[in-house]
């Protein structure tokens, strides 16, 4: 059987398959359908320093081959996570990665600092790309200086453990942003977060989402994501994690060919809660069919 293990900024994953933050809850919601121990890693819901109620309903609308969401980082805050959720989910064989967001640089750094001592948290993914919050989020991810400032502060607060920075596609040059966070010590970049979009109910003459705009995900964004992964993989030396509309194993391999060392599955979890297991199986089968002994061989071969 082919080797599927990959290394993301010092973190060894048993296979390249991770779950995208915000689409997998805390993992527990999916235990009736999958064996979490088989995942490369599971990235859980965006966590902030203070609790957040998120945006008003309606937060979601289906769009052609995708969906728009405007959840707005609803979560109970990092302290609640550490006390109540972490103990329940820390002992899986696959790696737990916490997605971190904030309204300002200090919030990001403080959240990372509080997560740092937890042995069961193997890495953090810093979200500088959420389009659905008024302050912070994407504001940091759309300029090289903002992205660099968050990365620098979190790097200092989170030394010696794997730091992934999740990038926004809502920029003119994602490769420039990727270089900026690499220069400040990010161990890896993941991309893409959702594309900012909008949809209107023409009968009611009002937007479908309470926030007017939202983040587009699903197969509709995949070609954009593949292109950006390809560009970023050529621009940086750190490993790239690819995501954006991966619905099956074929799509996952496409991202790896474009330059992703690992991948995240997001919206597809809503359609088929067992999709992650099928993608891992597909990768094994793909390697066998193509005579590949190590999946790392195909990374960035385009």
């Amino acid at each position: 059987m082919a080797n599927l293990s990959v290394n993301i900024g010092g973190l060894e994953l048993q296979n390249p398959v991770m779950t995208a933050s915000g689409t997998f809850g805390y993992g527990e919601e999916f235990t009736p359908f999958i064996d979490i121990n088989r995942l490369g890693a599971y990235i859980i819901k965006g966590t902030t320093l203070n609790p957040r109620q998120g945006n008003d309903y309606p937060r979601m609308v289906e769009t052609p081959a995708g969906m728009l969401n405007a959840v707005g980082l609803q979560n109970k805050g990092v302290d609640y996570f550490i006390e109540h959720i972490y103990p329940r989910i820390k002992d899986y064989k696959s790696h737990l990665i916490v997605n971190v967001s904030g309204a300002n640089v200090d919030d990001y750094a403080e959240t990372a600092r509080r997560l740092h001592p937890l042995d069961g948290v193997k890495a953090i993914e810093v979200n500088i790309s959420c389009p659905n919050v008024k302050e912070g989020g994407m504001a940091f991810g759309t300029t090289t200086s903002g992205a660099a400032a968050v990365t620098k502060a979190v790097r200092e607060a989170y030394p010696g453990k794997t730091l992934i920075v999740k990038l926004s596609p809502n920029v003119t040059s994602i490769a420039d942003i990727a270089r900026a966070v690499e220069a400040e010590g990010a161990d890896s970049v993941s991309l893409i977060n959702t594309l900012m979009g909008m949809s209107i109910d023409v009968e009611k003459r009002r937007p479908h989402l309470s926030t007017v705009t939202g983040g587009l995900s699903g197969p509709a964004v995949r070609p954009v994501a593949v292109r950006m992964v390809w560009q970023v993989a050529k621009a940086v030396k750190i490993p790239v994690v690819g995501l954006g509309g991966i619905m099956n194993g074929r799509d996952a391999i496409e991202f790896m060919l474009a330059g992703a060392r690992a991948i995240e599955i997001g919206t597809a979890n809503f359609v088929d809660p067992a999709v992650t297991m099928k993608v891992i199986d597909y990768m094994e089968d793909y390697c066998q069919r193509h005579g590949i002994s190590d999946i790392n061989e195909i990374v960035g071969c385009i």
Partner: peptide, 15 residues
């Protein structure tokens, strides 16, 4: 309410 996952993961259908 409009929902996606049905499993409490996406937090779209909140009331």
């Amino acid at each position: 309410n409009m929902m996606a996952c049905g499993l409490g993961a996406c937090l779209c259908c909140v009331e």
